[in-house]
């Protein structure tokens, strides 16, 4: 006697919704990574300020990095003559004024975001503030971490 095989439905896992979700997550993290890409010199160890506000509007910012004198950055050590770092390049005061002025022409609402190392001396910061004033920028922001913990959260 010929036995008839029962129809076995083929077990198929529909991957489409999972792939959709994964793509959404991928795009989200890629966009976040692009947005948070600023001129960050890794040698800068920012000071701690628990009351500092987390960054929300990153538009129209020019970044100036300041490290303690003698710290090597990109093969060149910072010195009294060249204490500022813009786009990983060590520069002097006229160079800083020039860079800020050029950026100011492209962005009239420019704000200067100073990433100053916690051990840097104020005399260097003072020169950077003066350079900002000479270039015509009066809005300045100091970078800080809210806490020492990883992630810098509160």
């Amino acid at each position: 006697m010929k036995l008839r095989k029962p129809d076995e439905p083929e077990a198929v896992v529909d991957m489409t919704p999972m792939i959709d979700c994964v793509f959404q997550l991928l795009i989200f993290f890629m966009v976040c990574a692009t947005m948070s890409k600023v001129d960050q010199t890794p040698e800068v160890s920012l000071p701690i300020a628990p009351k500092a506000a987390l960054q929300e509007d990153l538009r129209g910012r020019g970044v100036v990095n300041i490290v303690p004198l003698g710290t090597p950055v990109g093969g060149t050590a910072t010195s009294e003559d060249q204490p500022f770092i813009i786009a990983s390049q060590v520069t002097d005061e006229p160079g800083l004024v020039k860079a800020i002025s050029e950026r100011l022409q492209a962005e009239p609402n420019l704000r200067i975001y100073m990433r100053v190392d916690r051990n840097a001396e104020f005399k260097i910061v003072k020169r950077a503030i003066r350079a900002c004033a000479n270039a015509g920028v009066f809005d300045i922001i100091f970078g800080a971490f809210q806490s020492e913990s990883p992630g810098g959260g509160t």
Binding site: S36, L46, A49, K51, A52, A53, L54, Q55, R111, Y113, R115, I129, C132, A133, F138, D139, I140, I141, F142, G143, A144, F145, Q146, P150, G151, G152, G153
Partner: peptide
């Protein structure tokens, strides 16, 4: 990436 925070002032 450690989140950075702002302390702003004006000249």
């Amino acid at each position: 990436v450690k989140k950075e925070a702002d302390i702003s002032f004006a000249l």
